[in-house]
């Protein structure tokens, strides 16, 4: 439990909690990018440089931008929202709190977590690339297929059908 971990953890939790609680949806996404950046910093702290930088690139650079675009496309000006939370917010909050309680209890009572930090493994990007090309080549190919399918699928779903009939 170092000071840097505590600061990053606090930042991440504050960002994500604000993202789930703020009124303005764009503010939520901006707060969320803070949380994502905090998680990326935690990855860097754990020595996973490649994953941390990929996290920033994908979440801050792409997902957040996509989300704000979607929010602005679906926002109706002058629409007075009664509440940002749905009508069953009590049940949802209770479920989430219960899940956290169970997980925290499991973590606190587990004996597997009392480990010392092993020495920093030597993970270069080259090793990750080698692993991706040899041992994990099939998942990588499937990943590429999935991303292509998702790209085409997203365009087809979001395309305005009225344009075609005109």
């Amino acid at each position: 439990m170092t000071a840097s971990f505590l600061i990053l953890a606090l930042l991440t939790v504050a960002g994500t909690a604000a993202a789930m609680g703020l009124r303005n949806a764009v503010h939520c996404v901006l707060a969320l990018t803070l949380g994502f950046a905090g998680i990326a910093a935690l990855y860097l702290q754990l020595g996973a440089q490649f994953v941390g930088l990929a996290q920033i690139m994908v979440y801050v650079g792409a997902v957040a931008i996509l989300a704000v675009f979607a929010i602005m496309m679906t926002h109706k000006p002058g629409q007075a929202e009664a509440s940002v939370f749905s009508s069953h917010w009590i049940a949802g909050g209770v479920v989430a709190a219960a899940v956290f309680a169970v997980l925290a209890w499991a973590i606190a009572s587990s004996e597997a977590v009392f480990q010392l930090l092993p020495p920093q493994p030597d993970v270069t990007v080259q090793k990750i690339g080698d692993a991706l090309m040899h041992r994990f080549v099939l998942p990588l190919e499937i990943m590429g297929l999935l991303l292509t399918a998702a790209l085409i699928g997203a365009v087809v779903i979001a395309m305005d059908r009225k344009e075609e009939t005109k």
Binding site: L30, T33, Q49, L53, A54, I56, M57, G61, I65, V125
Partner: peptide
């Protein structure tokens, strides 16, 4: 001298888009 220096450069560059949006 980062091991993933070029990736760092592009990751930081993608933050610029967010600031432009803001």
């Amino acid at each position: 001298n980062l091991n993933a220096g070029v990736l760092f450069f592009f990751a930081v560059g993608s933050v610029v888009e967010l600031s432009v949006f803001m």
